[in-house]
Design a protein around this nucleic acid. Structure first.
Lengths: 188, 188
DNA sequence: GAACATAATGAGTGGCCACTCATCTTGTCA
DNA sequence: TGACAAGATGAGTGGCCACTCATTATGTTC
């Protein structure tokens, strides 16, 4: 059996935990992983100690946020894979991802391995990758992407575009034009 | 007249200044802009105070390094423009730049505007851009790049590739394959 | 080679930030 | 409703780091 379920949280604890997660998502999105835990506590309307009671380490907090983010991205990919046109779904996702990167510094920190992509988030990362792989093979079957393009190249282009867009602050139309070039490179 | 030339440095001061610049280039290349000034001082074999005598602010030191880097990159572009095949010079430079980014975190910090691309380095940045523009128009005249590709798109792809390569630590063959896709996207 | 300006030194200083803990508060449950 | 465990609080603590300054050393000049 799993090593004994932890006892249920008290009502106020559950409420505060949720507040902290919401606040942290906002703060890290705005200021990146460099934002202070104090800032998160303030935004959550909670004392600093409370944050550390729920997340013993800043890294734990960051990884909780990143895990959520990964899961929502994976969900988005799954939706696209199920409902979208296979010939364009991959490209649509690229656009969405770059948009997100510009508005959420968390995305960049997630992609920049140094912040600590640890065993804790390895699973979600894997899920996202396989979801994207589905998009890729779908696009290839539809003849929208060259057959010799591999997943790691797609991931590389994706991280490059996100990092570039965030750090250099690409305006929307530059995002579009740049992605168009990349898409051209992917097409047969 | 320019507001009075500062008096010549003493011999030891000149020597130490050079040492500090060399040490800083190494340290920032290895650890990025986050490296401490203390570390630079140690590597230069000099007391911390001496570093601050020559560069009153850490930012000043960083910008001096970045300025050097920009100038050497510009020189490299100029050489390529003068000697290389216009049809491939732009692509060659892309490869060189990404290589550099992987081995020098300074490059990434330079491209990540937040570290402080200030008026101080605006000139060198401009020079590099115009040099790259020469490469671009050369490649377009040679029919190697589509005519509707603009400089800002090339810069965006370049920063994206560098950021991605550094942060995700692309191995050399992934660098090559990814750049190939980008080059495909640029071709007519 | 003495006098003096210029430079080097390194032990502070202050600020920021992750993290702790003794104390007080509050939800829970009999 | 009272007792108690679980939780919240916020003033520390320690470590790191940019930057300072009184003191000491060294190049330069006549």
């Amino acid at each position: 059996m799993p090593p004994t379920e932890p006892p249920a949280l008290r009502a106020d604890a559950r409420r505060n935990r949720a507040r902290i997660l919401r606040a942290a998502a906002e703060v890290f999105a705005e200021h990146g992983a460099a934002a202070s835990t104090e800032e998160v506590a303030i935004r959550a309307g909670v004392a600093a100690g409370t944050v550390f009671r729920h997340f013993p380490t800043k890294k734990d907090l960051l990884q909780a946020i990143i895990k959520d983010l990964l899961e929502s991205l994976t969900a988005e990919v799954d939706t696209l894979a199920a409902e979208g046109d296979p010939a364009t779904a991959l490209f649509t996702f690229f656009g969405r991802m770059v948009e997100q990167a510009v508005e959420k510094k968390t995305v960049a920190d997630l992609l920049a391995a140094d912040t600590g992509v640890d065993i804790q988030v390895a699973g979600p990362v894997q899920s996202l990758q396989t979801a994207i792989e589905t998009l890729l093979t779908g696009a290839q079957r539809a003849g929208a992407v060259r057959d010799d393009v591999r997943l790691d190249e797609v991931m590389a282009l994706l991280t490059g575009a996100c990092q570039g867009a965030l750090h250099a602050g690409w305006p929307p139309d530059l995002q579009k034009r740049t992605l168009t070039i990349i898409f051209n490179g992917l097409r047969p």
